[in-house]
Simulated assay, not measured.
Amino acid sequence: MSLPRFPAHLRGKPRADRLMSTLVGVIAAYERISAFSGRRRPPVVEVDRDLVLRVDEVRAEADCVVSLRLVKLDGSDLPKWRPGAHLDLVLPSGRVRQYSLCGNENDRAYYRVAVRRIDHGNGGSLEVHSVLRRGSIVVVRGPRNAFPFVVDEKYLFVAGGIGITPILPMVRRAAALGADWRLVYTGRDLASMPFLTEIKELAEFDAERVWIRPDTEYGIPASGAELLEGSPEGANVYACGPAPMLTSVRVDAVPRAKAVFFERFSTPPIVGGKPFRVELRRTGTTLDVPADRSALDVIREALPDTAYSCKQGFCGTCEVPAMTGEGVRICVARAPGGTVVLDL
């Protein structure tokens, strides 16, 4: 650190002003310390958070679901990650989407993500399915973790459809820890549920722990109480899936669960909403948001490329900066009777 050089008559010369005298003394001492300790200080090196990876394999995992195996170009190890982590995947078009890591955390030779095709989405999943092939080059950022796995003794894991992606590594970790765990995996039908083979391997390891429950075999979706039937008393409940499933699990888990952790992939329903306005500062547009719609829905009509992943297994993609500097998740944010000003 380089300090300003004071004239000789201001350094070390007695002064009548005690405060100034003290300050001059402190500066002189700091100059001496800096000259000694800073002499060999290395320059600050900017960290590049982007990883350039190659798609090593594209595999069909279920109806409308493919997994991507991503590796480094030189074959070296990838950064460590923990269950619940996700990647920001930068697609060739420039779109950025978030996908949960669902491979083996102990094998750092590759990352694996799974993507369900959303035909009426905003294009990210369609691009993955139609453009990415073995050998494609992509950029990823992360891993980051907004759904962390907490080490404990008892677990119940509940996954709905593509919601299995963050849950699968958690199950493997719980099994490796020797914890008391259960997995309930539900979906529309077996054909739509990815990674069944891997889960059946877990079930063969201990059939009492894994319940695969497709709606087609039971006639209706499961209630929260049904999904929680085999939960160990005082277990941590981890759930990822559609909003109705998460709501029922959260309500019914209260009497017996130690804690409930969840990640949604559809926006929660609007209950008792009131109209408000959204001002998009950069585009110079102000939009009216009705009581029964979200800001995300209205903004996407004006800006179709606005990112979101509420239907792709990850919550948080639609967070955008407000002019106050805070992040706002526009799928749920509301300002009844007021205006939200966004940096869009």
Rank of each mutant, 00 (worst) to 15 (best):
Ser130Ala: 10
Ala295Met: 04
Leu132His: 05
Arg281Thr: 03
Leu132Val: 02
Ile299Asp: 09
Gly219Trp: 08
Ala253Arg: 12
Phe149Val: 00
Leu342Asp: 02
Met323His: 10
Ile118Pro: 04
Arg141Gly: 04
Ala159Ser: 11
Val298Leu: 09
His86Ser: 03
Pro7Cys: 06
Pro43Cys: 01
Arg173Tyr: 01
Leu303Val: 15
Pro242Leu: 14
Ala257His: 09
Asp288Cys: 00
Val55Ile: 09
Glu319Cys: 15
Arg256Cys: 01
Arg209Asp: 08
Asp50Glu: 12
Ser93Phe: 03
Val45Ile: 13
Gly12Leu: 08
Val44Ile: 13
Asp343His: 04
Ile330Glu: 06
Phe262Trp: 13
Arg188Ala: 05
Asp77Asn: 09
Val289Phe: 03
Asp297Ala: 15
Ala335Ile: 00
Leu168Ala: 15
Trp81His: 02
Arg116Tyr: 04
Asp252Trp: 04
Glu105Ala: 08
Lys274Leu: 15
Thr216Val: 13
Asn236Leu: 15
Glu105Tyr: 07
Asn106Gly: 01
Val260Pro: 01
Gly273Gln: 07
Leu3Ile: 11
Ala176Phe: 01
Val158Asn: 03
Asp292Gly: 05
His9Glu: 11
Asp292Ala: 06
Ala295Asp: 07
Gly316Asp: 07
Asp77Ala: 14
Glu61Leu: 05
Lys72His: 14
Pro83Tyr: 09
Leu202Ala: 02
Tyr99His: 12
Leu202Gly: 03
Arg256Met: 06
Arg293Trp: 06
Arg300Gly: 02
Leu303Ser: 07
Ser2Met: 03
Leu227Pro: 05
Pro42Asn: 07
Ser76Ile: 00
Val150Tyr: 01
Glu319Lys: 13
Ser192Leu: 05
Thr22Val: 15
His129Ile: 05
Leu78Tyr: 05
Met20Phe: 10
Ala307Cys: 03
Leu101Ala: 14
